[in-house]
Design a protein around this nucleic acid. Structure first.
Lengths: 218, 218, 218, 218
DNA sequence: AATGAATGAGTTTTCATTCAT
DNA sequence: TATGAATGAAAACTCATTCAT
């Protein structure tokens, strides 16, 4: 698949003073992810993030306008990456079911790649102030999923009488709930389980999309 | 089915002293739901809630220990009601698919019954302090759904090779995402759409549960 | 000696509802003494006192104008009693040294009689609002001690070149510090020790009053 | 004797930024002493202290964890100084009576040096939370006095049958009561009176310690 | 770039007191 | 008398943000 997909917010080891300024910015973002993941956005103090990043808290305002902007940047960067990955999948030309499998892989595997980042994404989604910003990008993701489903309908793979928009919510909701289960420790999350979740979601949802007539189970 | 399902947190406003204390307590909870729905828990001030309830803010601490306890009470009361309704469904003896349809109906219809309450439930799920409490009750709901799915497997209605726990997350996630869509105004939510969502979820998910023969997609 | 000396603020057992109103007032005062002794005046809440007294906190305002008045009443009642006892001693006509011994006995023995009361007296002496009131009565006590010393000087028992006012502070300070030592648990306070403290103070201070020949220290 | 004895909490007021941070900390402590002296600890608001110091109240929490810590610091600093001075006296090798005279001088002369500080010390001694801390240091002072008395007994200057611990309370109590008299304005406190108090206490108490046999006054 | 002292608006919570019943 | 619901002033403390150095 793709190379990074997610902005690399997992910490690296350097602590010395000779750091490129752009690197320091990244380090602050990494620290923010870790702290937000640990304590939640509202409960996190700017000082905590600075401490985690090993800088004075004043420096934070050199790189970001506000604490809010930190969260927004995290959201924005991450969703930009995720969207790009989804776009790759969309342009791959594979069948709808395989496209949706790709989306599931992108989202679910991000958990193992950077759990703290997923924690933040899952737990701080529904905050009001920057909701508008988020909607723009998360909305894009929904739209992409919806297009994939519509493509499946056009190809005859999925039932034509399906409301594709509604269906995209069903699919995305299933993915997010699994991620939430991992975030809250309610579901096992080893590699095998991640793979199982991926195939289960795709089988169940796409199976449902494919439309097993009501009488099929009889 | 059951009678109220959700505690009636939709309110009217009065300030006189001729109100039973228990009624006053309820009124404060109603106000909290409205304010939390409007501004989010963290952004809401205790004074806002008191004003909305038409009481002095001090009175709030007569009935509740803290602002946190307000949210906890809302969660607890609501989930107690929801669980009771789900239990009725579970004990009804109808086939698994119909049971899950009942669960979908309970959760989705609550949106029209008390949108503010759903807004709060959806947006404040993942708050840390009372997470344990919430998990206990929301966890019950998941367990009930899981049992319904297992029942469907035992009856031969659902694929036997399905991880029922994972499946319960898929089902619940779909429901919650639809609710979120309504909360964020991304999905139409008139009566007809609610009914459509209900049947779409049940058809898709239960269809998927019923088992898409591996070859069907080939 | 006298009969009660101190208002009886130590609790009695009655808890039933058929209580004379005057008795209830006393009970509230007793409760206040216990609570103030335990937590200090400022840290004590009116509700604590009401609970300790077994009444609703509103009732407190039937008998007293304010929380401050509770403390004032305790001070006033106690010092009225103490002053009366000291006056008895003063009018007894015994030699100055014996009069001072009587004062020491009154103050020191009050510790065993009602430790909580002494705790309150010792710890809350220097509160601002009612300072004037207190000064009036504690001032009386100092005046009485001063008169006793002056009597001793007139009788030739005590050195004539002694500043009697200053001397009264020395004598009273010694007494209060011993009480403080008991309150803070820094000094043993069994009956024998109380008696030892009494005689030590009288011997040392009155010995000092009696006049250390200038040459004695040479 | 020693140089400063008491931390210099008497202050001047400035608001500009050209002040060393350590100096700012000292200034806040000075302000706290003045405000506590004027209104008492409990009645003083943090804002009052900040205003007196000419800083924003938030800055206070940059240097101290809480309002309580302010009082604790004042106590600690002061008693550290007082103890050091008493230790100098103790190590001087002069006779017991002269040592006690030194202690009296240290404590009584502190009144003229920094009346507000003494006001705080005298009026807020018996507060519960930090009592433990205080006891440690004030307890040291008592122990030193006790050792001086025991030294006097060993040298044959003081009666051997005296309970030295009790005696230390008598001596210290006399000193504190004089200070209290000055704090409450009940005793004249000009230089001459301070000297008189000093010699009166030493003469009376040490005279008493020296032990004028009961029959001596006859 | 980097620091951290300084600011002050903002918020929860406490609790003495009142008063309708 | 007695209750306890109701009030609201008050206060400590937090913390994002600024800015002199």
């Amino acid at each position: 698949m793709h190379a990074p997909i997610l902005a690399d917010y997992s910490a690296s080891a350097l602590t010395d003073r000779s750091i490129a300024p752009e690197e320091k910015r990244r380090r602050i973002l990494q620290a923010a992810v870790r702290v937000f993941a640990r304590k939640g956005f509202h409960t996190s103090r700017v000082g905590d993030i600075a401490e985690e990043a090993g800088v004075a808290h004043g420096l934070l305002y050199h790189y970001f306008d506000s604490k809010d902007e930190l969260l927004e940047t995290i959201f924005h960067d991450t969703w930009t990456d995720l969207l790009a990955a989804m776009q790759d999948v969309e342009e791959s030309g594979v069948p709808a079911r395989e496209q949706l499998r790709g989306v599931a892989a992108i989202l679910l595997r991000s958990w193992r790649r950077d759990p703290d980042l997923v924690r933040v994404l899952v737990r701080e989604v529904a905050r009001s102030p920057q909701l508008q910003e988020q909607l723009a990008e998360v909305g894009e993701a929904f739209a992409a999923i919806q297009r994939m489903i519509e493509r499946g309908q056009a190809d005859g793979d999925f039932r034509a009488d399906l409301d594709a928009r509604l269906a995209s919510f069903v699919f995305y909701g299933a993915l997010e709930e699994i991620l939430t289960g991992w975030v809250l420790g309610q579901l096992p999350d080893d590699d095998e389980q991640v793979a199982l979740a991926e195939s289960t979601i795709v089988d169940v949802i796409c199976g449902g999309f494919a439309g097993v007539p009501a009488g099929a189970a009889a």
